[in-house]
């Protein structure tokens, strides 16, 4: 069903939290330079699956992942893979804007600094500017780069977090309900931004808003009770779902 190259492919992925079976044998192929959204009711496993893609689940002691997740045909759960390197390649934006208690500049420069991406201050300045531009925050922030990031408004903070994520030059951007803590205007700005990011990254977004999924994404995956129920072109899923459960969800009967 795809013409674009596959960026992420998951086969037979199961996730357990202790004894709880959170994700049940999920198979999915996600294309590059596209926005893919995961939808589904709360607790359906969409965020859990997203966090498997950059191995954020490693930070939870009781969490266990089986199956294969490949990025660019490389198994990210291979023993040789360092999650640190992986996460530089697969950036993440979280539900609540979580800027560090540092200046705007340092927030963006943090990733490039730890990964040693800039050889000098000039290069770092360049990365910061470019990232802030990409996140559509440059115009608002360029005169206050040394002010704390926590002083920005909620929507600006979330764009700062996006700038922070793109600063490490990731190839994949994971967004975990990035607008759920924002007001409608800020949400619209972020959605527009996601639309622009599409051209450079493989974007995967988890959202509880079906409207948002239909607005921003090319492909949509519907999760229910840990299973991937249906996956396909967004327009197709929302107009002509093939599974009964998907239909119930998008028409508001379950959720």
């Amino acid at each position: 069903m795809t013409k674009l190259p596959i960026k992420i492919s998951a086969k037979n992925v199961d996730v357990f939290y202790g004894a709880a079976h959170a994700i049940k044998s999920v198979d999915v192929e996600i294309a590059d330079k596209m926005v893919t959204s995961f939808i589904g009711p709360s607790g359906c496993g969409k965020s859990t699956f997203l966090r498997c893609i950059n191995r954020m689940n490693d930070t939870i002691d009781v969490c266990r992942v089986t199956g294969d997740i490949m990025i660019d045909m490389e198994d990210i759960y291979d023993r040789r893979v360092d999650p640190v390197q992986l996460r530089a390649k697969v950036g993440m934006v979280f539900q609540k804007p979580n800027p560090f208690p540092k200046s705007i500049y340092d927030n963006v420069a943090y990733g490039p600094k730890i990964h040693g991406m800039a050889r000098n201050k000039l290069e770092l300045d360049e990365i910061v500017e470019k990232s802030l531009r990409r996140a559509a925050l440059w115009d608002e922030a360029k005169d206050r780069l040394q002010e704390p990031g926590t002083g920005l408004s909620g929507g600006q903070q979330q764009r700062l977090c996006i700038a922070r994520a793109v600063a490490t030059e990731p190839e994949v951007l994971l967004m975990d309900e990035p607008c759920s803590a924002l007001d409608p205007i800020a949400t619209a700005q972020i959605e527009q931004l996601i639309d622009e990011l599409r051209s450079s990254y493989c974007v995967v977004i988890v959202t509880h808003s079906m409207a948002q999924a239909s607005r921003v994404s090319d492909r949509t995956a519907f999760f229910h009770l840990g299973e991937l129920v249906e996956y396909g072109y967004t327009s197709h899923i929302f107009t002509n779902p093939s599974d009964k459960r998907t239909e119930s969800y998008i028409t508001g009967r379950i959720g």
Binding site: R80, V84, E126, E169
Partner: peptide, 23 residues
Amino acid sequence: NLYHSKIHRSLLVKDARTQQRNN
């Protein structure tokens, strides 16, 4: 040429810097 790091970033090969950081 800022994005020199992008040239080959195979996850299976640990680069020197990551090694250093792990140490």
